[in-house]
Simulated scan of single mutants.
Amino acid sequence: MPFEKLKPEVVNILDNSEKNVTDRLHEVCKLLNDHIDYYDWVGFYFRNGDKEELKLRTYVGEPTDHEIIPFGKGICGQVAVSNENFVVPDVQAQDNYIACSFTVKSEIVIPLFKDGENIGQIDIDSETPDPFTEKDERFLEFVNQEVAKIL
């Protein structure tokens, strides 16, 4: 399903105030995982209180041992420090990559800002080498902007 068709579905999920925030985030993960064939693991990490670490809030995909990620470690930890999108076409080429599964070939992490502060991120793993384009970046930025509205 094209990104433009997914946008209203993301908004509808997030606008459903009858569900708690974590459930809505999980539904967004499921929507993206189900409708974008190269999104094999979709999750949201958020800053863990005052600690210099990220905590996994919800995800769809294979289980992960990486529920807590220190700032600076791995792709997610680097985005927590840099405040910038990070697209990894080949995870094997990254020195600071934390392997979740040997099947993961590429990753994209987009920071999530609330009131100008980086409070979390959406993380996508793919078993497809180099699938992410600028369209993925813009779409995931949109998703995070919509998520920020309910936090």
Score class of each variant (00 low, 15 high):
Met1Arg: 12
Met1Lys: 12
Pro2Cys: 07
Phe3Met: 11
Lys5Ser: 15
Pro8Thr: 07
Val11Pro: 02
Val11Ala: 07
Asn12His: 13
Asn12Lys: 15
Asn12Gln: 14
Ile13Lys: 04
Leu14Arg: 07
Leu14Gln: 02
Asn20Arg: 05
Asn20Thr: 04
Cys29Thr: 06
Cys29His: 00
Cys29Arg: 01
Lys30Leu: 13
Lys30Met: 05
Leu31Met: 07
Trp41Thr: 04
Tyr45Asn: 02
Phe46His: 10
Arg47Ser: 07
Arg47His: 07
Asn48Lys: 14
Asn48Trp: 03
Gly49Asp: 05
Asp50Met: 12
Lys55Tyr: 05
Thr58Pro: 09
Ile69Ala: 08
Pro70Ser: 12
Gly74Val: 05
Ile75Pro: 06
Val81Lys: 14
Glu84Ile: 06
Asn85Thr: 14
Val87His: 00
Val88His: 00
Asp90Met: 11
Asn96Glu: 03
Ile98Asn: 03
Ala99Asn: 10
Ala99Lys: 12
Cys100Arg: 01
Thr103Cys: 06
Ser106Phe: 00
Ile108Thr: 07
Ile110Pro: 02
Pro111Thr: 03
Pro111Tyr: 00
Gly120Gln: 03
Gly120Asn: 06
Gly120Ser: 05
Gln121Phe: 04
Asp125Val: 05
Thr128Pro: 05
Thr128Cys: 08
Pro131His: 02
Asp136Tyr: 01
Asp136Phe: 01
Arg138Asn: 12
Arg138Thr: 15
Glu141Gly: 02
Phe142Asn: 04
Asn144Leu: 09
Val147Ser: 06
Ile150Thr: 07
